[in-house]
Amino acid sequence: MRVIKTGTFSDFSYNQIKTAFRFLLYMAIPLLICDDSSMARKQVARSLPDSWDVDITYATNGYEGIEAIRAGKGEMVFLDLTMPGLDGYGVLESVKSEELKAVIIVISGDIQPEARERVKSLGALDFIKKPINKDKLQEVLLTYGLLEL
């Protein structure tokens, strides 16, 4: 590798650098699936694209979810809304207030348009209706360039 001029790194964002290194080192994306239902967690895991190199962590409520994100296990998060203890809205609020780095997609049965607007205003990238399947998830991931075919 050629020596890079001092200061060049500051031209890139933290995420760009990390993405570049991930590509070089073939690092898997730390993915968090946060849902209180074990069936729902499995449905999400089964819907992931086959080509996706991810390192999956599971959380069964919002508190576990936030802990995992703080620990760097949730750069990408699939988040349920209705959960005991801290719910999905609470997770989004914590991520926002603590300025944690996480790309969050809400997967919920609460299909009220208002719920979608609320999660987006709290920083969620998008909203997918339950029950999830491979096609729905792939479509959203492609839309945001999180997956390349």
Binding site: S38, M39, A40, G109, D110, I111, K130, P131
Partner: peptide, 17 residues
């Protein structure tokens, strides 16, 4: 119980909407 809760969750969301 978990499976029934999850399908109910989806159905009650549709009804709630």
């Amino acid at each position: 119980r978990d499976a029934m809760q999850e399908i109910t969750n989806v159905a009650m969301g549709q009804a709630g909407d």
